[in-house]
């Protein structure tokens, strides 16, 4: 066990998990940048995204995977847009406490709705486990290969959209200064809506990939919200590339830590990292604030 390939495998698994966390963190940081609040219901988009795919491939519909994934993602994006329309748009001018309590109430509502439909038990997509590929003593299953490929595609997509498109330019302008952006003739509500759609899509893709690699349960939202948040803190809040780096660091740290501590505490690693960052470099966070 204690050989070089074993440690390399741990690193590989860490990077894989990190790619998924990066997708969550980029979505979270995107909404933070545009609307200037932490969306506590982001975890529920992750969880519902994974469950929408579960719904689409299981009995009454039983869609094939290539059809089910787009359907699940479209519904997740609609859920994100609906969240904004029903809850956050009426609260656009409200103070932060009001907004946060509404977000945590919404997250609780969605989480229990999932539990009502699917129960609290752990579910899986039920795909057969295939023989992994093997290179230099490292194992990589087809699912894991898919995680890498899809994450990279998403990250490139976010880059193109954010830095090369007109919509991305509007979003960055909004993140910089909402009033100034509005005066310059940027359609703010449309830009905010597209930010929600992109954030939900990233959450949905990440949730599906995570569920492919592990399993589904209604609790997965909260745990991953904390990880995504820790990742955004590492990278500097509102910074897309920082979120990517932060996600990978969290994934690596978790998988390496499990070599030394009980796996029961795996989900605590992200929190410990978060506290350490806050103790050592609190200005990482405070410096980024624009209150």
């Amino acid at each position: 066990m204690d050989s070089l390939p074993y440690y390399l495998q741990t690193v590989l698994n860490g990077v894989l998990a990190g790619c998924i966390y990066a997708l969550f963190a980029m979505g979270l940081t995107l909404i933070y940048g545009v609307l200037n609040f932490v969306n506590f219901a982001h975890g529920e988009l992750i969880m519902w995204g994974a469950y929408f795919l579960f719904l689409a491939i299981s009995e009454p519909f039983a869609l094939p995977l290539y059809a089910a994934i787009p359907v699940a993602l479209v519904i997740t994006a609609l859920l994100g847009a609906a969240m904004d329309f029903a809850v956050f748009r009426p609260l656009r001018q409200a103070n932060r406490l009001t907004l946060l309590i509404a977000a945590i109430g919404l997250s609780f509502f969605l989480r229990n709705a999932a539990q009502l439909f699917w129960g609290a038990e752990v579910q899986t997509y039920g795909f057969e486990i295939r023989q992994g590929y093997q290179w230099f003593g490292l194992y990589l299953t087809p699912q894991q290969l898919a995680i890498i490929v899809i994450s990279v595609i998403c990250i490139i997509g976010v880059y193109l959209l954010f830095f090369k498109s007109r919509m991305g330019k509007s979003m960055r302008a909004l993140a910089d200064n909402l009033d100034l952006a509005r005066i310059s003739g940027i359609h703010t509500e449309r830009t905010i809506l597209s930010a929600w759609v992109i954030s939900s899509l990233l959450a949905g893709v990440g949730g599906i990939l995570l569920a492919l690699d592990t399993n589904l349960n209604p609790e997965m939202g909260v745990t991953n919200l904390i990880k995504a948040f820790a990742a955004t803190l590492i990278g500097g809040v509102g910074n897309i590339w920082g979120a990517l780096a932060g996600g990978i660091i969290i994934g690596l740290a978790e998988n390496i830590a499990v070599l030394f501590i009980s796996p029961g505490y795996k989900d605590a690693v992200a929190f410990v990292i978060m506290v350490l960052i806050l103790l050592v470099r609190p200005y990482v966070v405070i410096g980024e604030r624009r209150d």
Partner: peptide, 12 residues
């Protein structure tokens, strides 16, 4: 931490 961050820290 300010507002939201304190919320996540305590949640964690």
């Amino acid at each position: 931490l300010q507002g939201d961050y304190f919320g996540i820290a305590t949640l964690g």
